[in-house]
Nucleic acid binder design. Structure first.
Length: 462
RNA sequence: UCCAGAGUAGCUCAAUGGUAGAGCAAUCGGCUGUUAACCGAUCGGUUGUUGGUUCGAGUCCAACCUCUGGAGCCA
């Protein structure tokens, strides 16, 4: 048999072909008196390929009724210019075969479905236009992440998924254990984790940052990109229990350079998708979010505004706005505050830096003012915080003080402290939620719709 | 976890406390180089669950379940 041609390639053909083999799933069929139109989609493009099957094709009478929406089909024929109103390519079938049937209970129709309904059939939703687009863009966005860092000589580090260290402040952990919950080993009234698989309590990672610091302090510029897990009981459209995070870590790098990289990174991802996924972006613009293109171009074209936390609080206090949550130096900024800054006040992405040390984790570098740390958050319109990062505390004595303030055990982090004992160096990094970025780029408003099989509290179906 | 809203046919939604309906899908037929085709017919329901009020409940009340939006936590 001749080699298979993917639909996306057939649609972009430069010249006709006498022999082509197309395989995919039937989206819809329209029967005429002497022939049928069958729209085939194989997931490689949003646009379907139209196939014309004449009633003189062998097996037409018997098999064409089985070419129902959802059925898998193979067609051999000729690729020709469309004779219909729309320009482009179509296939004149010389033979066809129903590879896999789909009966009338196939839940996807040629009409549009709500995202909520499609979520319930997560195993079939990639066959829909919306989710085909989402997951093609997801793939491309992952590629763009690697491209950005590889181009800049960053080394990709696979940090562990199972870990015994809690990256403090990053949320609740999932425990990893082989202990039989019905008969756990007990010592002095407590579960004896020294008899567990790793001989100590262990968890699914909430961040690869600490491990990335190890590699930054030896390989200069590194990044991690992998799954992370949070056992928070968060029921929102922006949180999942399992999500992917991108965490670059750079040696000999201060907070300003960190902010520069974060800004370039966000812009680079947007530019990549606009350039490489035009068909998908047009779909999102048309059916998901009318403001999408403008918002992305807005972010792409403007330098990000930079303000200190103190200035940001000042702006909020002087805004004359009434907020549901109090604005006060020393308190965390709420979603409504972040949104005001980026959407109303500056009307562009904003990087807020130098947060009070009391609201930030132990590893962030203390500033000379004695009250703030070198932390930064990038805020974008519509979504809020998309990047969070900091310069890390590289001074051993200061870091040890932080451990005491945060009541953390220095013994547990001996290796992390060792980095400050041997050739310590100023270094910085940040984290970006991959799905958050994907939501920003596609306009899709629920994180469950940008993950193939979303894990959220109470839901691990599929 | 908190606040608000919703749950009716496969899907999207109607239905004043009084006979549960439409469009789409599906099935059958017709028509057509059609293209989210069109025309006609047919099929399709334990109104989320359990209890309560009432002569009578999809509708009112209570509890629970599920989903959605927002908030908190955060990425």
């Amino acid at each position: 048999m001749i080699k298979r041609t993917l639909v996306k390639h057939a649609l972009k053909a430069k010249e006709p072909s006498d022999a082509i083999r197309i395989e995919g799933w039937v989206r819809t069929r329209r029967d005429a008196k002497a022939f049928s139109f069958v729209e085939i989609n194989d997931g490689t493009s949003l646009t379907n390929l139209q196939v014309i099957i004449d009633n003189t094709v062998p097996g037409y009478e018997e098999h064409i009724p089985q070419a129902t929406t959802g059925a898998a089909i193979r067609v051999l024929g000729k690729l020709t210019r469309s004779q219909g109103k729309s320009e482009g390519w179509e296939v004149l079938a010389e033979s066809f075969e129903i590879v896999g049937h789909a009966d009338a209970s196939y839940p996807l129709q040629k009409k549009g479905h709500s995202a909520e309904f499609l979520r319930e059939i997560a195993h079939l939703r990639p066959r829909s236009n919306l989710f085909g687009c989402v997951f093609r863009v997801r793939s491309r966005l992952a590629q763009a992440v690697h491209h950005f860092f590889q181009q800049r000589d960053f080394v990709y580090i696979h940090t562990p998924i199972i870990t015994a260290s809690d990256c403090e402040g990053a949320g609740e952990l999932f425990r990893v254990t082989t202990i039989d919950p019905s008969k756990p080993p007990i010592k002095e009234g407590l579960i004896d984790y020294s008899r567990d698989f790793f001989e100590k309590p262990s968890y699914l990672t909430v961040s690869g940052q600490l491990a990335a610091e190890v590699f930054a302090c030896s390989m200069s510029n590194v990044y991690t990109f992998g799954p992370t897990f949070r056992a928070e009981n968060s029921n929102t459209s922006r949180h999942a229990s399992e999500f992917w995070m991108i965490e670059p870590e750079m040696a000999f790098c201060d907070l300003n350079e960190d902010m520069d990289v974060a800004e370039e990174f966000v812009k680079s991802l947007i530019a990549d998708i606009l350039e490489n996924c035009p068909e998908e972006m047009a779909f999102f613009y048309k059916f998901v979010d009318k403001g999408l293109t403008d918002r992305l171009k807005w972010v792409l074209d403007r330098p990000f505004e930079r303000v200190s936390y103190e200035e940001a609080i000042d702006i909020l206090l002087k805004s004359g706005q009434t907020f549901d949550y109090p604005v006060e130096y020393g308190l965390n900024m709420q979603s409504e505050h972040e949104r005001y800054l980026t959407e109303k006040h500056f009307k562009c992405p904003v990087t807020v830096y130098n947060y009070p040390k009391t609201i930030k984790p132990f590893y962030m570098r203390a500033n000379d003012d004695g009250k703030t740390v070198a932390a930064m958050d990038v805020l974008v319109p519509g979504i809020g915080e998309i990047v969070g990062g900091s310069q890390r505390e590289e001074r051993l004595d200061v870091l040890e003080q932080h451990f005491e303030h945060h009541q953390l055990s220095k013994e547990d982090y001996w290796w992390y402290l060792d980095l400050r004992r041997f050739g310590t160096v100023p270094h910085s990094g940040f984290g970006m939620g991959f799905e958050r970025m994907l939501m920003f780029v596609t306009g899709v408003s629920n994180i469950r719709d940008v993950i193939p099989f979303a894990r959220t509290p109470g839901n691990a179906e599929f």
